[in-house]
């Protein structure tokens, strides 16, 4: 597999002296769905800002599609990596949805026809074509979130990063956002989210990175989420589904289920066994 983001010995401190990143090493493969997990203040957001060249490495290196992230390459990097911020009000500032979604492509210096085409397809991708002429500040939170995502999609980045994308969304909003993210990964995009929602990571991601205190604590497939040592050290919790099965000592050698689908399969099998 090809890596699209590589992080080597990355250190970063804020002006007030807070050391946010203390030697991060990380590879993100192309077309994967990555969940970066960690408690509040672990350094998730600080790390994400490096992928978009909004933070530049103070020590160590970050490579995006073999391009080293530096002051010189920051603009190019930003066209390859789209970043969706946690609070859509931070991101959306124009008078209409259409204007806001065209902000990125216009900054890229594209022709008006190209901008128009990209805006239309981005609005379609997040299913808000009907809101194009609306003023963003009259929209609901979930709708604003979609505008924010469309604003990034219109730049057609290969890598899309979302900081706590599910925070404050209602169940339906969560559901449609998951569908949007699925669409994106089906198109071959690399999607990286930062979250502390283990259930969501279990359901959605195929690659897990756990960050604790500015370092990578564990990295791998979803089985990390049921590793008691990792979970405890990272101040996280088991996925809800797993918590239920922990109460039933496993007579099988299989790992504990962690998604609803896995749980259903397991329960069906267990009921056959006891019948």
């Amino acid at each position: 597999m090809v890596n699209c983001i590589e992080v080597r010995d990355l250190f970063f401190s804020y002006e007030d002296g807070t050391q946010a990143l203390k030697g991060i090493n990380l590879d993100i493969e192309k077309s994967t769905r990555v969940a970066i997990l960690g408690p509040n203040g672990a350094g998730k957001s600080t790390l994400l800002l490096h992928f978009n060249a909004l933070n530049l490495p103070q020590a160590g290196n970050v490579y995006v599609e073999d391009l080293e992230v530096t002051k010189k390459t920051e603009k190019l990097v930003r066209t390859k990596v789209g970043m969706v911020f946690q609070d859509p009000d931070d991101q959306i500032f124009s008078m209409t949805v259409r204007e806001d979604v065209s902000f990125g492509p216009l900054n890229m210096g594209l022709s008006p026809e190209e901008v128009q085409a990209r805006v239309d397809s981005a609005l379609k991708a997040v299913r808000i074509e009907d809101l194009a002429e609306k003023a963003p500040y009259h929209l609901s939170y979930g709708q604003k979130k979609r505008v924010a995502i469309a604003g990034v999609l219109s730049m057609s980045p290969d890598i899309i990063i979302l900081d706590e994308p599910f925070a404050y969304l209602d169940p339906r909003g969560k559901c449609s956002l998951l569908e949007i993210l699925d669409d994106l990964s089906q198109k071959g995009k690399t999607v990286v989210i930062a979250t502390h929602d283990v259930d969501l990571a279990a359901e959605w991601a195929n690659r897990i990175v756990v960050i604790q205190n500015g370092k990578v604590l564990a990295e791998g497939d979803k089985s990390i989420l049921i590793d008691p040592i990792v979970i405890e050290q990272a101040d996280l919790e088991f996925p809800t589904v797993t918590k239920i099965f922990l109460e039933f000592p496993s007579h099988e050698r299989e790992r504990f289920p962690m998604t609803i689908k896995e749980a259903i399969t397991r329960i069906k099998r267990m009921s056959n066994y006891y019948r």
């Binding site: 909004l54 930003r78 911020f85 990125g104």
Partner: peptide
Amino acid sequence: RVYCAMLARGYGGVGSNGEH
């Protein structure tokens, strides 16, 4: 944060690509 989000979408400051 707003400024950061603008930079993330390739903003280069008023004047450089001024009228968006």
